[in-house]
Write a protein that binds this DNA or RNA. Sequence first.
DNA 1: AAGGTGCGCAACCGCACAGAT
DNA 2: AATCTGTGCGGTTGCGCACCT
Length: 266
Amino acid sequence: MVKAALVDKNGLRKGAWSEEEDTKLRVYVQKFGHWNWRQLPKFAGLSRCGKSCRLRWMNYLRPDVKRGNFSEEEDNLIIQMHEELGNKWCVIAGKLPGRTDNEIKNHWHTNLSKRVKQNQSVSSELMNKEKSTETSQTSQSEVSETEKSETESVSVNTPSESGHRPKTVENFPSSHEISCIEFSSMSNDSMSGVNGVAEECFSSSMEIFQDFWNQPFLADNNCNQDGYDSMFLTEEGLMSSYASNYGDDGIDWIQQAMQEIEDSTS
DNA sequence: AAGGTGCGCAACCGCACAGAT
DNA sequence: AATCTGTGCGGTTGCGCACCT
């Protein structure tokens, strides 16, 4: 199902993620946010490239990711939006809470595209049938009407058919906004979705970080590789216990914090 | 039971874009 | 204005499972 794990020439792991890697990444992002994906694996103790970490978090580890089968409503919405927008998976994902662009894309390629093709071929078949009926039996309009309605019922709703006007892309959240939404969704509510180990680990630290999690944009916008320690220091001394213990070198206290997390989970 | 084949999905890759320098 | 860096998106790959012969 997943790519086998292997190590590339730079010593970075590729392929399937282990449970341990997942836990490390989940714990780190939940605690510190993703202030810099490139640097993140170094601090989180992961031998992965930042891109891989980001993808794993976005598509799998995020607390608000919905797993499982797509509902009929979701399918219809995807088909409809794909009709309007094309392969704008991130935009479509923005309209389906808990679904990732990757998941929707996969679902489209494996299921929905086939369904749409089928529907279109059935639709055109019936249209042809209707045409020939019309030319040969112009007086029997009732039959045509019946077939017409059948055609409409099996064909995919196009914007014109459904009366649903195409939404402009501007109506949807930008990728940045989506990123903010997804981060803001990591409230205490959604923390219930975190697995037991991480949850236990966070139960105490979450109190300390309450303000931090209530200000989701802080993590996205204010935390860069140069500013992480200043950010925490300005959080009313929330991180001062860490920071004061380890001086100006933020890396040390982050790694120390991660070590503490690892110790508590082992 | 064993080998072949197709499918589903997690993950990778390359490119484009935005912001910083 | 040019270059660099980080991030996000869409296309593609490839592994593992289920089903078929």
